[in-house]
């Protein structure tokens, strides 16, 4: 995938977005440059790039060498695409890569519904057209106490929320996964209630960290990672990152997310990464980063406290786990 950028020296300081939001200095500059040029950063799902703006040279990004803002190297493409929790394709980590071959993410329709001024149902291409895709490296911490570092490609959910124009009644956003038992063998079992549902509070949905993701490692999302459209909230446990989204609904009441419905004692709505609140069956104080031998300490809000802690000020995070 080719990413076109201006030279960093072309940047003015007003182009600078808070650095912690982004990958690392290098990626950040690319993104800033791209948006400064009024350009989508390689909208892979569209398959083509706008050809405008003062673009210098095509440049190949070596995704494997990207690092998070804490200097953590990204995991390999192979790890990211062969070790997945996506129960629609089976419950073991290797199942999604093996069983998702029959899944067809194109054509795809996304519905925006509920308490919004601009509801609608869109073909994926039209749905994505207005947005600028960016690459961002995020940690992902699974509730099962393992973690992985991933270079996602997507756009802030906040941009979509702005376009949808939620009304005063919209307090939460509810997401729904596609229901296709013929292509998703897991949906032919009763392991979970289908379709999978997740939700965010409206302020969480508009937090700058929250992404709607269409790609990984600069490529379109593979089926096993939630093609063609998934959610990423890096300060929350991985199960919040609902995959293969077909419906985004603005609602008044707290959505009944699938894992909470399955086992409310063990999984909450908020699911914020929190080393001080253990899961009943395992400690959340530590995690195994894939590729590392010794467990490392889990960070509060998965290391994104500066960006998200204020949303939960005054809340009892033991109660609202």
């Amino acid at each position: 995938m080719i990413i076109r950028v201006r030279k960093p020296s072309d940047l003015s300081s007003s182009d600078i977005t808070p650095e912690h939001v982004y990958v690392n200095r290098r990626m950040f500059l690319k993104q800033a440059a791209a948006s400064a040029a009024g350009l989508a950063l390689a909208p892979a799902a569209l398959g083509a790039l706008e050809r405008s703006g003062p673009i210098r040279a095509p440049q190949q990004v070596d995704y494997a060498r990207l690092k998070s803002e804490l200097g953590e190297p990204v995991n390999s493409y192979k790890d990211i695409t062969t070790y997945n929790n996506f129960y629609e394709f089976g419950t073991s980590k290797s199942d999604p890569a093996k069983n998702s071959g029959d899944f067809h993410p194109h054509p795809w329709t996304v519905a925006v519904e509920g308490h919004v001024k601009n509801p609608g149902s869109y073909h994926l291409e039209d749905f994505l057209a207005p947005y600028k895709l960016e690459d961002r490296v995020y940690r992902m911490r699974c509730v099962e106490a393992w973690s992985i570092v991933v270079p996602w490609r997507g756009f802030p959910l906040a941009d979509l929320v702005k376009k949808a124009e939620p009304t005063g009644d919209a307090k939460f956003v509810e997401f729904t996964t596609v229901m296709r038992p013929s292509e998703m063998p897991g949906q032919r079992t009763g392991v979970l209630q289908w379709p999978y549902v997740e939700g965010l509070r409206l302020d969480e949905a508009t937090n700058p960290l929250t992404l709607l993701v269409t790609g990984v490692y600069g490529k379109d999302l593979p089926n096993q990672n939630g093609a063609p459209l998934r959610l990423i909230t890096p300060w929350k446990y991985g199960f919040k990152g609902i995959k293969s989204i077909v419906k985004i609904r603005f609602v008044e009441g707290m959505p009944h997310n699938t894992w909470w419905v399955t086992n409310p004692r063990e999984y909450g709505f908020y699911a914020n990464v929190n080393p001080h609140v253990d899961h009943p069956r395992w400690s959340q104080a530590r995690e195994r980063r894939l590729g590392e031998l010794r467990r490392r300490e889990t960070l509060m809000f998965n290391g994104y406290q500066d960006e998200v802690a204020s949303m939960y000020a005054g809340m009892d995070l033991r109660k609202w786990f």
Partner: peptide, 20 residues
């Protein structure tokens, strides 16, 4: 040895606190 790196405090904590 591998999962808990022989960390005695982690081991005893898990045995005491995790029913499984």
């Amino acid at each position: 040895g591998l999962d808990l790196s022989l960390e005695l405090s982690w081991i005893t904590e898990d045995i005491a606190k995790r029913p499984y």
